[in-house]
Amino acid sequence: MLQKFIDKTYRWAQRNSLWVMHFNTGGCNGCDIEILDLLTPRYDVERLGILAEATPRHADVLLCTGPVTHQAKDGLWQIYSQMPSPKWVVAVGSCSNTGAVFHGSDTVLGGVDKILPVDLYIPGCPCRPEAIIDGLLKLRERIAQGEPDQV
């Protein structure tokens, strides 16, 4: 009974306080700017409890943009392993979903899911801020339903 209450409270808190960290795995800046744009007056995601954090230790959600290049691969894994669980990975933009325009390049591995377990894919090139908000709301729903994060 008590355990159930605590679980429910924790899920409510996690849902309402997503601290995101953004990592560019080799993208073109397009999605990165749109993510930064989320913090600015027009889209202001702070009203949804979303804050941009500077260090992976404080973050709950890793927002990846861009296709994974060979050189960024290790950094991406390192950052993910530094995050305390429960943690989620969101692939923002078509490039980080599948590689998109950069498919077939020698220096590009492909989507983020080649390296990390991705919880949510947001298509778009670049994603509109509304699309990213929509994606993060979907992630909140998943958390509210109590789906465990993939490890």
Binding site: T9, A13, S17, R47
Partner: peptide
Amino acid sequence: QRRVGPPWYQPLADLIK
């Protein structure tokens, strides 16, 4: 900064999280 800002329960949610 011309934004709306967080809802009232935000600090509590952050803390519990």
